[in-house]
């Protein structure tokens, strides 16, 4: 999640100081991505260094408001115009894990799939529970996005499992393998 661009989008509406940005960010995303105030200030410092925001004189209360610069507006427009790359999604770790599970001796791939399926379903149940209280549209969209991602992962797991059944006969239940071996022994004898 780009906190950087999130803050730029908020500043596009008008100048704000750190705490205001944090609460606006959380209100906007329905607290899906809680920020700590340190992250907000670090990000503001970097944005200022890059010339995308400008720090204004402190208020009497000691709070320094920030405003977006022309460069900041260009950066923000570019962000909205650019699709998100999915290269660094956590799910990739899952894909790698399953690929390795297939080739690592002694790993029950079906149980790896099922363990993940249960965990993802639990996540999906929890998101769905949040849906029961109807929130504002921006919040519902964020929640729906998480729900659809979890659902996609579950469908992909179903797909993996179906592929396992079809293409890797060595993962069939143990009793079958054992009885097949027995038969071989009888044949040899």
């Amino acid at each position: 999640m780009s906190i950087r661009h999130g803050l730029l989008a908020l500043l596009e509406r008008g100048q704000m100081y750190g705490y205001q940005l944090r609460s606006a960010f959380e209100a906007e995303t329905g607290a899906t991505w809680p920020l700590n105030i340190g992250q907000v200030y670090t990000t503001l410092t970097r944005l200022e260094r890059d010339g995308l925001v400008r720090g204004l004189p402190e208020h009497d209360g000691g709070q320094r408001p920030y405003e977006i610069t022309a460069e900041g507006r260009t950066e923000l427009a570019l962000w909205f115009a650019t699709p998100i790359a999915h290269a660094d999604r956590p799910r990739d770790e899952l894909a790698i894990k399953l690929a390795l599970a297939l080739t690592t001796p002694g790993v029950d791939v079906q149980s790896v799939v099922q363990t993940q399926r249960s965990a993802t379903m639990r996540t999906l149940q929890q998101y769905t529970r949040l849906k029961k209280d109807d929130g504002e549209l921006p919040w519902r969209l964020v929640l729906d996005s998480l729900i659809f991602q979890a659902e996609a992962e579950l469908r992909w797991l179903d797909h993996c499992e179906a592929s396992l059944v079809r293409f890797v006969p060595s993962t069939s239940p143990v009793p079958t393998a054992a009885s097949a071996e027995e038969e071989n022994v009888h044949e040899r004898a």
């Binding site: 607290a31 899906t32 639990r122 929890q126 529970r129 949040l130 998480l146």
Partner: peptide, 19 residues
């Protein structure tokens, strides 16, 4: 029955980890 998934009530904790 190979598994059962029980949704816990602690949705807030889940959101903490979603980021």
């Amino acid at each position: 029955v190979v598994d059962t998934s029980v949704g816990s009530a602690d949705a807030a904790a889940l959101l903490e980890t979603a980021g």
